[in-house]
Nucleic acid binder design. Structure first.
Lengths: 155, 155
DNA sequence: CCGCGAATGCAATCAATTTGCATCAAGCCG
DNA sequence: CGGCTTGATGCAAATTGATTGCATTCGCGG
């Protein structure tokens, strides 16, 4: 799985060609807006809200609807995951990025109740006790875990 | 019903007087709509969405806005908690019910990704490993835990 | 039983999305 | 390399759900 250097948080520079490949192989055309969205998702490691994405890319002249539709397209293609981290905001997180990009496995998220910030916790593991009464999938760990609390800044 | 014989002492039948007391002691008037909402929250143990509440009580002639405002009032009074369990739907859960009603402590929730059903897991405990990089509050367990997956029905 | 202010019903407003449609451009073919 | 076909985009209108304004009604202390 991981090569010696795979753990390094260094983002593999999203190569333009790689991004295009990813899109094309998913049956999506490679357009400026899509490359921008996809590239941005490769740069940031935390889930982004639609608004965040629009702020970050809006100055490039893309339309809200376009970004929105692209995010949905990417989600449908299985490239990103669309989730609500508990703050009533849709967020999009890269799931199946260009080859070699990490951050693809399911992992817990932490959302700050105060500032709304999101932290990914790929290294966190949970041990569950007293799963009686819980759905089977809980015992089988076939679940998504989400934590809410105060981040170090806000506590 | 399940006779897990566990901790649940049995839902104390929400006495009308008790509900009124609860409202009055929170500075809220005891009205038909409020008693209905509060009573319903005492009966159901899982968080209810605004829509669910309206479905359940709407036939009694209450207005959407009224139920909505009442839920907000109760939330502001600290009687219910308003949370988004990750499906982009606001849910309201009893936090400080009439004396003796349980279900008041913070506990994990499980949301089914398919049917949207919610299960409370008051008995579930978690052991966290590899909290490095996570906010301090995680290690201190000052957090809300939420699980998403498929319930037994949908799996 | 009366009066004041909170609560309610109804409609209008707001905000966040989502969709319709004419236009433009990516990918394909000759 | 220049069209051609169809998906993608921009702009604006349509939706959907959440909130708020306001006149009326009702709870409840006096």
């Amino acid at each position: 799985m991981k090569h010696a250097s795979a753990v390094a948080p260094l983002p593999s520079p999203p190569s333009l060609a790689a991004l295009q490949d990813l899109l094309r192989s998913s049956g999506l055309r490679s357009t400026a807006a899509r490359l921008a969205v996809l590239g941005y998702l490769h740069e940031t490691h935390t889930p982004n809200s639609h608004a965040q994405m629009f702020d970050a890319l809006g100055d490039r002249g893309f339309d809200r609807a376009t970004i929105y539709r692209n995010l949905m397209d990417l989600a449908e293609a299985g490239i990103v995951r669309r989730t609500d981290l508990g703050d009533h905001v849709w967020r999009f997180e890269l799931v199946r990025g260009v080859a070699g990009s990490r951050h693809t496995e399911e992992h817990p998220h932490f959302v700050c109740l105060d500032c709304g910030g999101v932290v990914c916790l790929p290294g966190l593991s949970l041990e569950l006790h007293g799963t009686g009464g819980a759905p089977r999938s809980v015992g089988e760990k076939k679940i998504t875990v989400q934590l809410k609390g105060l981040c170090d800044n806000c506590s």
